[in-house]
Amino acid sequence: MLRTTNLHATVADKPILNGVSLTVPAGEVHAIMGPNGSGKSTLAYVLAGRPGYEVSEGGATFEGRDLLAMEPHERAAAGLFLGFQYPVEIPGISYLQFLRESLNSQRRARGQDELSAADFIKVAREQAKLLEMDSEMLKRPVNVGFSGGEKKRAEMVQMGILAPRFAVLDETDSGLDIDALRIVGEGINRIMRAPDKGVLLITHYERLLEHVRPDRVHVLQAGRITRSGDIELARDLEREGYTEAAA
C-alpha cells in the first residue's frame, strides 16, 4: 500500500534520510522506532509533503501512485493522514469549521458530495465521543489552549472524522497518560484496523505497541532501517536500548 524505495531526504541541505526502503501492505500496522535524531519525524514529513523536506534520491508510492509528485492536499484526498507530533494551533478557527472545510475539500477532490453542516456535526460528535473527548472542545479554536495530551487525542478525533486509508502517526503517544494511551490505542485500532487500510506508527516507546500490536517493527538509525522484526524486537529495544539491541 505504501512503499518507499531507497528514500533519501535532506532538510536545509543536511542529509537526514539515507536510503529508507519500506513496504507496508494493506491491512498491516508497522511501527518505526529509533533514537532521537534518527530521522523518524523527517520520514513522516516527507511522506506528507512538508515544504523544505527535499527528496534527493529514491521514491515513494501510495497505492501505486507516485506520492512525491502530489501536493500535500492531494495526498490527503488520496487518503493519507499525518498525525502530528506537535499539532499546530490555529487561533480564530474552530475545530468544527477547520475539519468540515478539510473533509469537504477532500470529498470534492474525490468527486463526492459535500457533507451538510448537520451531518458533519453528527460525525464529529460521534468521533469525539469514541475518543472520550468532550465534543464542546470542537467549538474551540484549533488546538488553542489544549494540553499536550488533548492535542494528541484531538489528532485521533481528526483521523476518525477524515477516515483516511493510511495513517502516519508521528509520536502520537508522547504526552499521554496511561488512560489516554489506552484510549488512543483503541482509537487507532478502531479507525485503522481494516483489510484495506494501513498504519505507520512512529514511536519512542513500546507501550503504545502493546495496545496497537504492530505486524512489523522497524528500527530507524542514522536515516536508514537497521533492523526489522515482530513485536519482540520492540520489547528487546525497551529492555536493552537502541545501541544494545541493534548490535
Binding site: E71, P87, V88, I90, S102
Partner: peptide
C-alpha cells in the same frame, strides 16, 4: 507550519 497543517488535512493552498 499552519499552512502545511491545513493542507495536510486536505485544504488546497
Amino acid at each position: 507550519m499552519q499552512l502545511f497543517y491545513a493542507e495536510s488535512r486536505g485544504l488546497d493552498p
